[in-house]
Design a protein around this nucleic acid. Structure first.
Length: 511
RNA sequence: GGCGGCAUAGCCAAGUGGUAAGGCAGAGGUCUGCAACACCUUUACCCCCAGUUCGAAUCUGGGUGCCGCCUCCA
């Protein structure tokens, strides 16, 4: 497998430090608001890498952090007049929900900055002790001149970096403008600060990643260098540059062997970002489009390239994936899934797979995860259904259903209100649907609904829809097209599309 | 100003020296009680100029345009 390593700026053969095992860290979100589609792209990209490495047979340890101590979190919490911890917990939870919706697998470790304060302090003390950091009035700064490779990721020298640095914050506590904070003094905010040898304060942003990586790697593998460190390409500088500097000065070893970065999601020609408020949250996108659509949209473009977010692009992606899904939906009935949406193939099914197609697929993904070509290959081989299913699952699509994430609740109510049912003979159907709607409501109110629970609920829903399909079929046979079309129309309104066949009962799918 | 990336059909997107994959949308058709789904057919002088070569979207040089980072950011 080859990956584009931003450290060397070259496509390189991927060879983990200890053959057979891969340690992989990707930068997670700062949890102070709902995540947007840019976070989704990053998560999906690195989820795919983890999945693919596992598929290739590597023993993967995937770490993704949660930044839960940060000025933005604290300011936001103040605005809302709630404790910072409450706010960060809420948005950690919202992030998890989004990740589950998008079928992003769980990292093996998900460290949170506040759980590592003692380790962070030790890390900083170590840096001070060996002369690459200094304390000033309760702050601690990293001295970039102590790390000769500073600028390696950005491909600039320290003097290059100093050029045109008018945007740097003039801070006269620093010995050098490029020095960055490891610890910031916040003496007057005891609720959101931590005790340290330098007084009350909070860790700087970059130090948490270095510390958590070092702690986890040391504990589990007794090493200090990751195989892969990944994140958005906006993090290359200063975030990742600073992580490199801190870690290598502290441990004496490079932080990571391979550095991979995903391109930004653009909106109207500009990077989607919180500060420009030109973002679409994952939730708002999932209210309109299916989770698989979002993954397909991301994977249609190579992960390194910028991707333009538009409504039409999402619609195109939805049509595209629907076509793939429709092609395999019949075959999917023979496939079992585990509770993590992974397909479970029987020995016979496995034996029936098209090895040649799989090998071409692997060859494509081995080339720095060339997902657009991989998807094209699937479109060209739609007739090889079991293999297409197998390969789509490697790409992380949730093949259990291709429904819209938030459609179920509104859908149940729509059905309950369907006028086509409002006849005396169908009162039972209405009653049972309303009961299901209520139980679904109860489920969502516990605020802990999972995809699995939705699916359990869906099986109840399924029998109700089947009842409607039978009613419609009866009407069609009686050539009562007015009623049959009405049922179809009402189901359509509820987000359910009916498929008719010549030789077998009609089927439905969620749209 | 420094560094990096990108430029291929109406839209998205592969292709990295041998004569332009794939998807969406559009058009025509088959199927259908009507639809939806599916299927068939159909759509490109590869940003510009110069060079290397038997041959370039692909390599070299020079332009032009767009974007990112250098401040928090996936």
């Amino acid at each position: 497998m080859k990956v584009f390593n931003n450290l060397t700026h070259k496509l390189e053969a991927f060879e983990p430090i200890n053959s057979g095992t891969v340690t992989f860290y990707s930068c997670g979100p700062t949890v102070y608001d709902d995540s947007h589609i840019g976070h989704a792209r990053s998560a999906i990209t690195w989820d795919l890498l983890a999945r693919y490495l596992r598929f290739k047979g590597y023993q993967v340890t995937w770490i993704r952090n949660i930044t839960n101590v940060d000025d933005k979190i604290i300011n936001r919490a103040k605005e809302l007049n709630i404790p910072a911890d409450t706010l960060s917990r809420k948005y950690t939870y919202e992030f998890w929900n989004d990740m589950v919706s998008l079928n992003v697998s769980w990292p093996d470790h998900e460290p949170r900055a506040t759980d590592y304060i003692p380790e962070i302090i030790k890390f900083i003390e170590g840096l001070i002790a060996q002369g690459s950091a200094y304390a000033v009035e309760g702050d601690v700064y990293f001295s970039v001149s102590s790390y000769s490779k500073y600028g390696q990721l950005k491909r600039q020298t320290i003097s290059d970096l100093k050029e045109g640095n008018s945007r740097l914050d003039p801070n006269n506590k620093k010995k050098d403008q490029l020095d960055f904070a490891l610890w910031k003094a916040f003496p007057n905010e005891p609720l959101s600060s931590f005790n340290s040898p330098w007084g009350l304060g909070r860790p700087g942003w970059h130090i948490e990643c270095s510390t958590m990586i070092e702690t986890i790697l040391k504990e589990k593998f007794a090493i200090s260098t990751l195989d892969i460190h990944a994140g958005g390409d906006d993090l290359i500088f200063p975030h990742h540059e600073n992580e490199c500097a801190q870690s290598e000065c502290f441990t004496g070893k490079p932080l990571a062997k391979y550095w991979l970065h995903n391109g930004m999601v653009m909106i109207n020609g500009t990077k989607m970002s919180k500060s420009l408020s030109n973002y679409m949250t994952i939730k708002s996108v999932l209210a309109k489009f299916k989770p698989n659509t979002v993954r397909f949209f991301c994977l249609q473009t190579h992960y390194k390239k910028q991707i333009n977010f538009t409504n039409t692009a999402l619609q195109a992606a939805e049509s595209g994936f629907d076509k793939l899904f429709n092609a395999i939906s019949e075959e999917l009935k023979n496939v079992n899934f585990d509770s993590f949406a992974q397909i479970q193939l029987s020995a016979a099914q496995r034996a029936s797979l098209d090895e040649d197609l799989i090998n071409r697929f692997i060859e494509i993904l081995d080339n720095d995860l060339a997902t657009p070509q991989a998807l094209a290959l699937l479109f060209e081989n739609l007739n090889k259904k079991p293999t297409v299913i197998y390969l789509l699952s490697i790409l992380g699509f949730d093949l259990r259903s291709n429904a819209k994430e938030n459609s179920l609740k509104s859908l149940i109510y729509s059905i309950a209100d369907a006028k086509a049912l409002s006849t005396a003979s169908h009162i039972d159907a209405i009653a049972s649907i309303k009961a299901a709607a209520t139980s679904f409501d109860n489920l969502t109110e516990t605020n802990s609904i999972t995809q699995e629970e939705i699916l359990i609920n869906k099986s109840g829903l399924d029998s109700m829809i089947q009842t409607l399909l039978e009613l419609r079929e009866k009407a069609r046979l009686e050539k009562n097209f007015e009623l049959s079309d009405r049922i179809r129309l009402e189901l359509e309104k509820a987000g359910i599309t009916i498929k008719d066949f010549r030789d077998k009962p009609s089927e439905y799918s969620f749209t």
